[in-house]
Simulated scan of single mutants.
Amino acid sequence: MTASPQDPAPNPHATAEEVEAALQDTKLAQVLYHDWEAETYDDKWSISYDERCIDYARGRFDAVAGDQPLPYERALELGCGTGFFLLNLMQGGVAKTGSVTDLSPGMVKVALRNAEHLGLPVDGRVADAETIPYEDDTFDLVVGHAVLHHIPDVEQSLREVLRVLKPGGRFVFAGEPSTIGNFYARWLGRATWAATTNVTKLPFLSDWRRPQAELDESSRAAALEAVVDLHTFDPTDLENIAKSAGAVGVQAKTEEFAAALLGWPVRTFEAAVPPEKLGWGWAKFAFGGFKTLSWVDDKVLQHVVPRNFFYNVMITGVKPGTTD
């Protein structure tokens, strides 16, 4: 589990001046926001590296590429964050060895640490997704989760993905926000945050209120998040971008409609109240409710609701040619 010695060090405590500069520089904002979030990101999004998230990652992969022979020999995760997608896919038998890249040094550091704890053969680089620092025809598989919407030039990034893939190699990206889904998710998140932070000002609910300094920091992080979230996607438009980049066998699918209507208020509420107030009962409700509504989405709503109304977009494609 190695990182390149020339990679920059994480900067988890951005100054006010750096944050102000980042409001005008999206790539600086990406680095500052994700370095800021790196050490707490897994807890914030309930990310784990056990059966629960292995099944989730495999479910996203199988939804668009489930008919492929496994495992792939070498895989790359683009915009790896803490390594959630690739590390769980590797544990689920999708790939033998891996590489992780992210614009944030803090995220690469945490992803490599997670890989080491899991005993997985993974190397890592701090890298811009528009100029991937690997040779042509290096990887059998490229994956990413919730990354394309952070990249200024998505088509250029997909060209780079196809360049580093071997002929016949596949990419799978999941967790991208749809345009309609992002609208209702953001509205629900803002409404939940406003309601929770105002109600907990009441004296008899004061112990349900996080310290003001923590709420202020969350608000600053949210301001940066608004800068780093650059795109939402109509599934058909995303398919066309991938085809324009040179991919073949392109297919987009969507998921999470009812589940997103629950998930966004739940996650926002969790960020607004002290974590010690939320015990096992809350966790059981949140996870159980998400699972139940995901089943409703999959078995019922997928057949009656247009795909662009679902929150998450997944896409796969292949590099033309075959390996000899």
Rank of each mutant, 00 (worst) to 15 (best):
H231Q: 01
T292P: 00
E270H: 06
T292K: 13
V273T: 12
S219N: 12
S294P: 01
F269N: 10
K253E: 09
F233C: 03
T236I: 12
T236F: 06
I241F: 04
A272M: 11
K284Y: 06
A222L: 13
S244R: 15
E214T: 11
K291P: 00
V228I: 15
P235S: 09
G246T: 11
A271L: 11
D237Q: 14
F233I: 02
G263T: 08
A242E: 02
G246C: 05
T236N: 08
F233L: 05
F287R: 15
G289P: 10
L261E: 08
P274W: 03
S218E: 13
V248I: 15
W280H: 12
N240L: 13
K277R: 15
A258M: 12
A272R: 04
R267E: 08
G279L: 02
K243H: 03
W295S: 10
V296N: 06
K277H: 04
E239W: 01
V250R: 02
S218V: 05
P235H: 12
L224A: 02
G289V: 10
G263S: 07
E276V: 04
W264Y: 15
L230R: 15
A245W: 01
S219A: 15
F285C: 03
K253R: 14
R267N: 10
K253Y: 02
H231G: 01
A223I: 07
G246M: 09
A247G: 00
E225G: 08
G279Q: 05
A258L: 14
A213I: 11
P235V: 01
I241R: 02
E270Q: 15
W282I: 04
D234V: 05
A286L: 05
L230P: 03
A247S: 08
G279C: 08
P265L: 11
T254Q: 01
P265V: 12
